[in-house]
Simulated assay, not measured.
Amino acid sequence: MSPPHRTPACDWSPAPRPAPLPPAVGPRRAQSRNRGHGAGARGPPGARHRGGQRSFHVNLRAIIQVSQIVARGLIARGAPGSIVNISSQASQRAIANHSVYCSTKGAMDMLTKVMALELGPHKIRVNTVNPTVVMTPMGQANWSNPQKAKTMLDRIPLGKFAEVENVVDTILFLLSDRSSMTTGSAVPVDGGFLAT
């Protein structure tokens, strides 16, 4: 059974400088950062500047800012820890009309690898989870059209989208000591999409 945890919510987009974490957060040993933004994700020439900027702020800039705060706290206390970022299968596969989204998620994967190199000497592990479409309310809204869903499902060997629990279980594993030798990794939760 996992220990009790709190899930604070912060809106980090597009703030001129990092907002402080809520006071309830306090010292922590592990962090999982999840929020995706795909608005304005049309490919050139249809990409919208404002939507692309928001995607950059939410999908990448906020990751950098929150991770800096958490890593500095861990280092100052001399505490080991684990940071898990939520990326996407779209970081590793080009998807039409998703140029900004794919680009920011690809950048997040590389940021995770660099952070793993830089924070490893401080005993801080950094990984990403790269899910397929997840059946959150947003996933259901965006993929409820059977014709649209079929195009993606046909590329997933298991023939289904992920449930929230599939992603949460992977995050909990990466935050736990059971993954103590895993850092700099992008872990797919995609039903085999990236294997095709």
Rank of each mutant, 00 (worst) to 15 (best):
T151F: 07
I69S: 14
P22F: 11
V25T: 14
P27S: 09
S179D: 01
Q31E: 10
Q68S: 10
M115H: 03
M110H: 12
V168W: 07
K123R: 15
E165C: 01
G106N: 01
P16F: 02
P80E: 12
G120E: 03
D169S: 13
S13F: 11
G51Q: 06
L74H: 07
Q89T: 13
G43Q: 06
R93S: 13
G78K: 06
N130R: 02
R28A: 13
V70C: 11
N145L: 00
A195R: 12
D11F: 05
M135Q: 10
G73S: 07
H57R: 09
I64K: 04
Q147S: 14
V126F: 03
V100F: 01
C102S: 09
P3A: 12
P80A: 13
T112I: 00
D177W: 05
R35S: 14
I63H: 13
P157G: 09
P27F: 05
Q53V: 12
R28C: 15
G40V: 00
G26A: 04
N142M: 11
G139I: 03
N59V: 03
A9I: 15
L174T: 08
S87H: 02
G26T: 02
G192K: 00
V129W: 02
P4I: 05
A186E: 14
V167G: 05
A141D: 09
L175S: 04
A162S: 12
K113A: 13
C10F: 12
F173D: 02
M181Y: 14
S87I: 07
I86L: 15
I86H: 08
P27L: 04
F56E: 02
R6S: 13
G78S: 03
G184H: 05
M152Y: 14
K105W: 03
N166D: 15
G73M: 06
S99D: 12
G184M: 04
S103A: 15
P188V: 01
S144T: 07
N145D: 15
Q53C: 13
I64P: 02
K113G: 03
A9C: 10
P22M: 05
R50Y: 03
V100K: 00
Q89I: 14
I86Q: 08
G73V: 01
S55I: 00
M135E: 09
I75V: 15
R54Y: 08
V187A: 05
S88R: 02
R61C: 06
G120V: 06
S82P: 03
A116C: 02
L60T: 00
Q68Y: 05
A39C: 09
R178Q: 15
N130D: 14
Q147G: 06
A24V: 12
D177L: 04
T132Y: 01
I156Y: 04
R72W: 07
P18K: 07
L21V: 03
V189T: 07
W12Q: 13
A96G: 12
G36Q: 10
I95S: 08
G40A: 06
A79T: 09
T128W: 09
P121Q: 05
